[in-house]
């Protein structure tokens, strides 16, 4: 692994919907093995940013590069590029008509044209690692939310992506299932994966991040290391944002 190697390069991108300017001149470079956590208030454009990175959304201005390649929905080799970027979404997005194993093996076989036997073997290994061996031949509807998200992570991993994008993957889960999914991501961190993670789990963000990006009003307001960001944020906006996660003791009137 080469910490100097630039995996993703985001240069001055802007993106708007109708009148609304969602991303305004964002630049960011992601190095190999780096884990960047993106936080910010609801609607500040975190999902839009991730979606621009794998070409689900087109940027209005600026460029996104994966290695040497330009990422944009309209480039001819966009599917090739997307193979190299894994993405896991907030909603459970497994294919409901396929078993867990089939969900995981579909893209490697149909997109990468890998052999079924080899793909099955790797899928089983990966599913076992996230504790889903027993669920392989079940359908998504038979799984809990946390199990579905773990399967969705495996489905992205089996493509051997160079970078993984996580968009609030625990936000739709019941509280008792959040942990099992975060543990899988911590395990990925130990494997030195390159990851961009959008999350509202602040304790998790602090534990996993190499860098924290605070996004607000379409700008990167802070880009700091987690220790600094969570104890001494540089800006008032970040301080206000972090305060929304803490509660003061209630002083009852007598």
């Amino acid at each position: 692994m080469n910490r100097e190697k630039e995996v993703l390069k985001i240069e001055h991108i802007s993106k708007g919907f109708d009148q609304l300017n969602v991303l305004d001149d964002i630049s960011l470079t992601v190095h190999e093995g780096e884990i960047i956590v993106i936080v910010g208030p609801s609607g500040c454009g975190k999902s839009t940013l991730l979606r621009c990175l794998n070409g689900l959304e087109a940027v209005d201005d600026g460029h996104v590069y994966l290695g040497e390649e330009t990422v944009n929905p309209s480039v001819k080799n966009i599917t090739r590029i997307r193979e190299r970027i894994g993405m896991v979404f907030q909603s459970y997005d497994l294919f409901p008509h396929k078993t867990i194993l089939e969900n995981v093996t579909l893209a490697p076989m149909k997109v990468q044209k890998r052999k079924r036997a080899e793909v099955n073997e790797e899928a089983k290994k990966l599913l076992e690692r996230v504790g889903l061996s027993a669920k392989m031949s079940q359908y998504p509807r038979q799984l809990s939310g946390g199990q579905k998200q773990r399967a969705a992570i495996v489905r992205a991993l089996i493509m051997h992506p160079e970078v993984l994008l996580f968009d609030e993957v625990t936000a739709a889960l019941d509280p008792e299932m959040v942990r099992e999914v975060l543990d899988v991501m911590l395990d990925l961190a130990r494997q030195n994966r390159t990851m961009l993670i959008v999350t509202h789990e602040m304790a998790f963000a602090r534990a996993i991040a190499d860098r924290v990006i605070f996004l607000d009003g379409g700008h990167i307001v802070e880009d700091s290391d987690p220790g600094e960001f969570f104890t001494l944020p540089k800006t008032d906006r970040a301080r206000k944002f972090l305060n929304t996660f803490t509660f003061d003791t209630v002083n009852k009137e007598i």
Partner: peptide
């Protein structure tokens, strides 16, 4: 069929024709 079904298929590198063939039409 929710939009996310198309998008999660695209995100796996499946092109539009494969997305319809393996993901959307069977459903």
């Amino acid at each position: 069929i929710p939009m996310i079904q198309y998008e999660s298929s695209y995100a796996l590198g499946m092109r539009r024709s494969k997305t319809y063939l393996y993901v959307i039409i069977p459903q």
